[in-house]
């Protein structure tokens, strides 16, 4: 039996996920240059990158950052805020995170309560289940009716979306606790608060993280959609406005930023989860692909 050096496979596995997308982008570029693809609808990657750089340089994506030193030296904090409020990226991020926090915190609290208390659960679950299935973007007009067309309604819609996802996942996590842990907690003298802090919350935290991950993803969807229809700044607005004015390369640039944002959210939460839920880091054995298996058996 001949052993192929291990690093061959490893190097291949590391290069493939980078190399293949680069290949696709190259094909795209070539296809546009040979006019196989209509550049009005699908601008070449190089055009999109240029557009992205332009959006940054002109201060549309990140705000007019070059004004910052002046504002700071004169202590004009309103001016500083305005710079960030006029950057599509920052304003979207602000809406997402403000809404996320405002939805997730009560979601965890009420989800825990519903998981622990039968009466509260039975009373609230049908109402929340009904509200949960309602697409959040569908209630945007209602939210704007109540909270106005300003920042508050956009933050609220993200908060509502996050709230339900975190609530239901937290509740499932709390209900999933094995009775033996509660028994051990009680037998070793934990009071109600200690039981929550040392047993219920950590036991439910993997579920809570699922809720957080889902709601961060949903927050991105919801905020982009809300910005399509009801904003003058934000990544959703950038995409929508670029489409309306047929600046497709700006539209694609906006999509790229949204894509990067989504990826960063996911990996950021993963990193946070590894820090806060370290006991879950079991070395799961990688499932073997069918093709790998064939090669292995062919070698032996």
């Amino acid at each position: 039996m001949k052993h192929r050096p291990q690093f061959n496979v490893e190097t291949r596995d590391r290069l493939l996920p980078i190399g293949f997308p680069i290949l696709l982008l190259l094909l795209w570029e070539i296809a546009v240059r040979l006019t196989w693809l209509d550049a009005r609808f699908f601008p070449a990657p190089s055009t999109i990158i240029t557009a992205l750089v332009n959006l940054i340089v002109k201060g549309e994506l990140l705000g007019k950052l070059w004004l910052l030193p002046g504002f700071i030296s004169t202590g004009d904090w309103a001016g500083v805020l305005k710079v960030f409020a006029e950057g599509h990226l920052w304003i979207s991020l602000y809406r997402i995170f403000a809404g996320f926090v405002l939805g997730a915190v009560p979601g965890i609290a009420l989800g825990t309560l519903m998981g622990m208390n039968r009466t509260i659960r039975i009373a609230l679950e049908p109402v929340f289940s009904a509200l949960y299935v309602l697409p959040k973007i569908a209630i945007l007009p209602l939210v704007m009716l109540v909270l106005g067309i300003g920042e508050v309604s956009k933050i609220a819609i993200v908060g509502i979306a996050a709230f339900f996802l975190v609530l239901f996942n937290t509740m499932a996590g709390v209900r999933d606790i094995e009775v033996i842990y509660l028994e051990a907690g009680r037998n070793y003298g934990a009071n109600r608060w200690q039981l929550f802090r040392h047993v219920i919350l950590p036991s439910a935290s993997p579920f809570i993280f699922v809720g957080l991950r889902l709601s961060l993803g949903t927050a991105l969807i919801v905020i982009i959609a809300a910005e399509f229809v009801a904003a003058r700044y934000g990544l959703g607005y950038l995409v929508w406005f670029s489409w309306q004015t047929l600046l497709t390369e700006n539209m694609f640039a906006g999509l790229i930023v949204i894509m990067v944002l989504g990826t960063l959210f996911t990996s950021g939460l993963h990193a946070l989860e590894r820090r806060l839920v370290p006991w879950q880091r079991e070395e799961r054995r990688m499932p073997m692909d069918a093709s790998e298996m064939q090669r292995q058996s062919a070698k032996s």
Binding site: I180, Y181, A184, N187, H198, P202, S203, S205, W279
Partner: peptide
Amino acid sequence: MVFQEYAIFPWK
């Protein structure tokens, strides 16, 4: 108590 299923906390 000492439990048959150990009941030690996986998160500690």
